[in-house]
Nucleic acid binder design. Structure first.
Lengths: 142, 142
DNA sequence: CAGCATCCATTCAGATACTG
DNA sequence: CAGTATCTGAATGGATGCTG
């Protein structure tokens, strides 16, 4: 009864959630993509990575972002545990938003996204039908 | 201070594209998110990280994925330089899909997404604040 | 100031039918 | 087998107006 580890490709997690046959909210990748989903979301996170912001400060940093969508994004990010609202009593109302520890850990995630998108040595794919001479599944250290 | 660089938060890239005020396709983060956008996309990439697949093999690995959406995703990923089609002459037609080197580099990106979504020590946000009411469990909605 | 409610245009996913 | 074409419903983004 060798409950031997399932053989999986290098770089793929050895976790049952890595074997899902359809998109499911419990998959960690889906969780992260759900947190970052939608237009403007990463830009809002970027602003908050710089520090605490009020609603108005965010709106000013992203002038083309409508109130409604900003509200949506802040609610979504709060639900995802990325940021917390800090509402102050008095008038005029002031609400500050800042990242949670979990939210700050999006830094490396955004960095990974940035790095892949910024890799230009890769953009030869249009002419690079040949460069993939080796199989995709080979013991290639990716 | 002759040519002081713009002050930016730690972990934020020192690149003009990091300062965009609205979502733009030239932003590296947007490029990556565009490649991964849409339902099923990451699962298709995951399958291909295991090795070359035909259209049918992909369809079998992801039974709930319709032909049309699979076609869409494959075209999208090909446009993004993530995979290449290898069409063989003869009958019946056989088309293989495999990742490009660029596509294989999505491995670390997916890993970063996985890691963030899988981090459970982070779930202190529910108790972090008088956040009132919303004790969002991980990814139950979405 | 910081939002919520409502409406509308666009995009997207999925189903179905057809083709080289 | 491996797609393409077309259609519908759902989700999304954005504009506008109102409120505590």
């Amino acid at each position: 009864m060798a409950h031997q580890t399932v053989r999986h490709a290098p770089g793929l997690p050895d976790d049952s959630r890595a074997a899902v046959a359809e998109p499911t909210p419990s998959c960690p990748v889906e969780i992260t993509l759900a947190a970052l989903r939608g237009r403007w979301t990463t830009l809002v996170v970027r602003e908050l990575l710089k520090g605490e912001h009020t609603f108005t400060q965010l709106a000013q940093a992203l002038p083309a972002l409508s109130d409604k969508v900003l509200t949506d994004r802040l609610a979504q990010l709060a639900d995802s545990g990325v940021l917390v609202r800090d509402r102050r009593p008095g008038w005029p109302p002031r609400t500050s938003y800042r990242l949670t520890p979990r939210g700050r850990r999006l830094g490396p995630v955004l960095q990974a996204l940035w790095d892949w998108g910024a890799a230009e040595g890769d953009t030869d794919w249009g002419a690079a039908k040949d460069d993939s001479g080796r199989g995709a599944a080979e013991g290639d250290s990716g």
